[in-house]
Structure formats: structure tokens, C-alpha cells
Simulated scan of single mutants.
Amino acid sequence: MKVGIGRAASELGVSRDTLRRWEAAGKITVERTPSGHRRYDMAQLRELVPHKSRSERVTIAYARVSHHSQKKDLKEQINHLHSFCTTHGWDFELIQDLGSGVNYHKSGLRRLIQRICDGDVERLVMTNRDRLLRFGVDLIFALCENFQTQVVIMNINSLEDFEDDIAEDIMEIITVFSARLYGTRNEKNQKIIDKLMDIAKELAE
């Protein structure tokens, strides 16, 4: 499969400058489109990236809560993960995050994605699939499949935890949406903002 430099760098977990250095050193051959853009052969590139053996790869347990008031819930998640991994005989590394399920910039999530793309992760263990993301989690699972990372979901979640997280996620969506509408000087949009903010206040109570 031939891809552009951005996608090639992303899939291999290397920088664009690294690909250019490999080209300059003659390690790889690069095709050019009529407009001069580089096209890389992914099969050739993957041969240059060292892959860890199964025994070198790790199990990562991922835990997340939406806000500081859920520290007790976070501890319970971690305890469940510890017990589950221990029962299965898996040594594991823990990555924990604080942030809503619609926040794609959480430091732990970004670190997890990088580890998966580096080929470091044998399996990913979570109490529930929405611990990763509320929307778009299937993209992460597709990455796991591509890099041969097993996904293990325990399906442990209380109704109270679920309701708290949903409320937090809805509040963040409302906040972002309101910010985009704010300042448009449109009376209709302003009414929408006011209604959304009223909903957010009710959720926070």
C-alpha cells in the first residue's frame, strides 16, 4: 500500500524528518506523484521498524474518571483491574486519566495510543469500553487490531458512575457548542445558548 508522508509517519510512530533521513540515506525508495508528493510503500517501511516479541510486550490497564470528585470511583476501577490482571497472571502497567469521555487530549490517552503504535502493548484491559472515549472508541480498537493488541473489557460499571459520566460529557459538549455560537450576534443562536446553559446548570446540581 502506497501512502503519503503524514500517514506513513503516523502509522509507524516516527517523525516525518526520520522518513526523509531514511530516504536521503538510501534506506528506502520513494515514489513521487506528478505533483511531486512523496508516496511510501508501507510494507517496506515496516521492515525498518523493530517489532518487539510477544514476551517483550506489556499489558496496560487503563482507568479514567471525569472529574476530581470521582477519586473513589477511580480507586475502585484500579482495584478491579489489579484483581483481574493478577487472576490471569498478567504483570501490567497502569495508565490513569482525569477528564471527560469526549476529551481527546487527555495525557494518559495520548500516551496509551503512542505505546500501541510503538508496538509495545500486548493487551489493553479496561473495566468498560467508554473508559477510553464516549465517541470514537472504535478508532482506538482499530489501531489495536492493526498493531495486534488484544482488547479485554471487563464490563464493570455502576448506574451511578454511568449517569455521572454522561452528565459530565453532556456538559462539555454544551460548553463547546455554546462557545462556538457565542458572539455570532444572532438572536436565535443566543436563545439556543441560554437554553443549553440552563440544561448544563441542571446537570451540575
Rank of each mutant, 00 (worst) to 15 (best):
T59K: 05
D130N: 15
I60W: 02
K188W: 08
L203T: 08
I140R: 07
T86E: 11
M1P: 12
Q96H: 14
L48E: 02
D161R: 11
Y62D: 13
Q114V: 01
R7Y: 07
I199K: 11
R180W: 03
R32C: 14
K71T: 06
H37V: 09
R54G: 08
Y182G: 00
V125I: 06
L132W: 01
F177G: 06
R21T: 07
T127G: 00
I170N: 03
M126D: 00
Y62V: 12
A43L: 09
Y62W: 06
G136A: 03
I78L: 03
T86I: 01
E47V: 13
R32A: 13
V151K: 05
F84A: 13
D41W: 11
A25V: 07
E47G: 06
I173D: 08
T18F: 08
L112I: 03
K52G: 04
A43N: 13
Y104H: 08
S53P: 07
V121A: 03
A142H: 13
R123C: 04
S55I: 11
Q44L: 15
A200K: 15
E168L: 15
E145M: 00
A25L: 13
I113H: 09
S69L: 03
V176Y: 00
Q44N: 15
E56I: 04
S100G: 05
C85H: 07
S15N: 02
A25M: 13
S100Y: 01
I170S: 03
H88N: 09
V151L: 06
G108C: 07
